[in-house]
């Protein structure tokens, strides 16, 4: 099934080819399947929707945005190669949301401070995570999982699970729309564009990919491996902090269990989006496609009245099918 050499043998696609080949190259994109699946789920759901697809589409954009933010961070971490994953994302979201909302205490003048606190708590988590990984040589899975206990405890300790309301202006922003598009989706889109530029056009992204394909070779080629890995873990935690800040503002306050579903979600959107779980080969558009799909599939099955058991089985089967389809394309290339 898996071909560890496949990505190394096929360097990332060249851009700016002739029109015909660029159309063909789109068909070969690993992220295409996530969008096809999301589109199919959208059409199936919209078919039973009285109000038409517009409301459904905007709702999907809203909720996909949170998955996109954590998914992009996770994608960069996973790109670093086998064994790299950040399991502290849910706890980081909870901590950032809790600290920020407590600091703002509903005062609109404190919104910049709240945002800064959320990002700073993400920064701190990233530093701790990489400290455990590098200085104590703990494998990332164990390091980030054990860090998440500390982070979650800090969140519990800081506010004992009490929900503090966000400032009204911030709540309005998080639930509001600009030109009909949800604000949180705009934020996630900007972050995605930035991430795409970093991954595809900047030296930093090339270095992340190089490390993921072969860390030893990257080191010998002069890539500052430690600095790049450090920056990657920190960025992932900062994005989780931003997601926690927005989610807490969106849903009327931070709750201790608010990040729980984003642990598997962050990994699922990376894989469904067509990035290699073995690292070294990632793409940003797939994160959006997969995030939309993950929301729409649940909406679709709910709308058709599927029970929880059926819903979980079908979700699992469909995810396997998409990953297999995307993987199959890669092999045949």
């Amino acid at each position: 099934m898996s071909r560890p050499d496949a990505s190394a043998a096929h360097p990332p696609h060249r851009h700016g080819d002739k029109p015909v080949t660029s159309l063909l190259s789109i068909l070969r994109k690993p992220w295409l399947w996530a969008f096809i699946a999301a589109g199919a789920a959208f059409v199936a759901t919209a078919a039973v929707t009285q109000a038409g697809g517009w409301g459904l589409g905007m709702t999907a954009l809203t909720f996909a945005a949170f998955s996109v933010l954590v998914g992009i961070g996770q994608m960069f971490v996973i790109t670093l190669g086998p064994g790299n994953v950040d399991l502290s994302i849910p706890a980081t979201m909870t901590l950032a949301g809790t600290l920020a909302l407590k600091a703002m205490a509903g005062d609109p003048a404190m919104i910049p401070v709240g945002l800064a606190i959320a990002l700073a708590s993400g920064l701190a988590v990233g530093v701790v995570n990489y400290g455990l990984i590098r200085l104590l040589s703990i494998p990332p899975i164990i390091a980030t999982l054990s860090a998440s206990f500390l982070i979650q405890s800090a969140a519990i300790w800081s506010n004992r699970g009490l929900r503090v309301k966000p400032p009204q202006a911030l709540a309005d922003f998080a639930t509001g729309r600009a030109l009909g598009v949800p604000n949180v989706a705009v934020v996630a889109l900007l972050v995605a564009v930035l991430a795409w530029v970093v991954l595809e056009r900047a030296l930093a992204g090339r270095r992340v990919l190089a490390i993921g394909q072969n860390m030893r070779a990257a080191r010998l080629a002069g890539v500052p491996v430690d600095a790049v890995r450090f920056a990657t873990y920190v960025s992932c935690a900062v994005l989780a902090g931003l997601a926690g800040f927005l989610l807490a503002s969106f849903s009327g306050g931070a709750a201790l269990n608010m990040g729980a579903e984003y642990l598997l979600m962050s990994i699922a959107v990376v894989v469904i989006g067509g990035s290699s779980i073995a690292g070294g080969n990632s793409n940003v558009p797939g994160i959006w496609g997969a995030s939309l799909f993950m929301f729409l599939i649940v909406s679709m099955l709910n709308s058709y009245g599927a029970g929880a058991g059926v819903r979980m089985i079908l979700t699992g089967v469909i995810i396997i099918a998409i990953v297999a389809a995307a993987g199959g394309r890669k092999v045949s290339r």
């Binding site: 759901t45 919209a46 039973v48 929707t49 009285q50 109000a51 409301g55 459904l56 709702t59 999907a60 809203t62 909720f63 989610l247 969106f250 849903s251 009327g252 306050g253 709750a255 269990n257 608010m258 729980a260 579903e261 929301f295 729409l296 649940v298 909406s299 709910n302 709308s303 929880a308």
Partner: peptide, 20 residues
């Protein structure tokens, strides 16, 4: 399924409402 959490319930309800 809202998983007894406000944010999960909000997401699930928002997703199913258009079809109801």
């Amino acid at each position: 399924n809202g998983d007894w959490a406000q944010d999960v319930a909000q997401k699930a309800v928002a997703g199913v409402l258009p079809s109801l």
